[in-house]
Design a binder for these strands. Sequence first.
DNA 1: CTGTGTGAATCAGTTCACAGCA
DNA 2: TGCTGTGAACTGATTCACACAG
Lengths: 227, 227
Amino acid sequence: MQSRPRIPEATVARLAVYLRVLTGLVDSGRGTISSGELAAAAGVNPAGLRKDLSHLGPCGTRGVGYEVSTLRDRIAAVLGMETAHACVLVGIGNLGSALAGYGGFGNRGFEFVGLFDASPARVGQRVGDLLVRPMEELDAVVTGTRATIGVIATPAEVAQPVCDRLTAAGVRSILNFAPVALSAPAGVGVRQVDLSVELQVLAFLDKQRGVPGQTTPAALAPAGGMA
Amino acid sequence: MQSRPRIPEATVARLAVYLRVLTGLVDSGRGTISSGELAAAAGVNPAGLRKDLSHLGPCGTRGVGYEVSTLRDRIAAVLGMETAHACVLVGIGNLGSALAGYGGFGNRGFEFVGLFDASPARVGQRVGDLLVRPMEELDAVVTGTRATIGVIATPAEVAQPVCDRLTAAGVRSILNFAPVALSAPAGVGVRQVDLSVELQVLAFLDKQRGVPGQTTPAALAPAGGMA
DNA sequence: CTGTGTGAATCAGTTCACAGCA
DNA sequence: TGCTGTGAACTGATTCACACAG
């Protein structure tokens, strides 16, 4: 059961979480950990965690648990964290600035190698340790740095053209924060993060769960899985 | 098939997307739309869209399609968008400021009624049209405004205590941007948004898809579903 | 004759239960 | 004895195919 037959996407997302937890444990000098404890720290169920790890081949000791630093390295290798990933970020508004300054990326092997904005007012500004560049330079920077990931934090109206330029320049994966569905050529991966949708789901689930003094008295507390 | 038997969570997330698309179509004066066209705009498959809408009961006209404004209103009602949701936001760093200033929330019935930060340097600053308040006022604001949603954009170390304070004050749903798994009392919904995980999944899928000149030549282009 | 609404089939992901190794 | 690793059962979601209304 090595990584040959392909690791499910849901598992990959959780592996990234385990990696973060394990890195913290390594730093605090922890030697080994059981699936139960690691699962608790990651917010998942222990059996599921063991199944996730089974995709990496056996990596624990029965009756004992997992060696923290070994497991960390193994996951890092599988996720391709040994090589850094160059990213470009387009749209340096509030959100773009926040992303550019977010330390969580650098720690995990993702480095922004170019920040771009269409507004002359923003071009030339310093964000983190990079200067904001004009859109005209996008293609040259992507090809020059071999950036493989593009992050879009522009207004919705321009997200598709930005996506087109990124893919034309050779970007292979796109993380889109603009609230529009992007279409990209085959072979280019797109992931959508929609903040409003998250809030809306949250509000709906709360409503469905049954608010004490609300218009819908029908709900008998679904009781079920709530993370 | 009304909303009685409960709408799947995956469907709820997509309904929020349809709602956004439909709102745009209403503004541009579009009268009716077919499932195929709406699905394309939302980035989903037409049959899935029809199944999603079937949870609202019949709302289209066979041979014709859906009436845009009627469908918009219907989805808005199901998602509980007719009443505004009061939210508080804790942690006004780069990301928090971006969220506070993000127009996408207000449009969709979510209103920030309080911004909080532990740092005296940030308290009193103006972000959007609100002033940043000290943490001491959190409880009073939540109870006073009946805020039901809390958004956490703090460093990971303090996210759990902040979560505890929010839930103690009566918040029923939490959107967490800090990279830690939160534990909350039963009856409180938590959703996690982890930006690094998104990038890591993207990078992994790209790697798995097979990069032209890479160490893993085994991949024969999985071909399958790539949004 | 077009496009919705939906059962049936498929597929993916999660949970359970326990066999097997330290 | 304790905890991993994993087949098997189950749950949930997606896709397909087609009956049926306008």
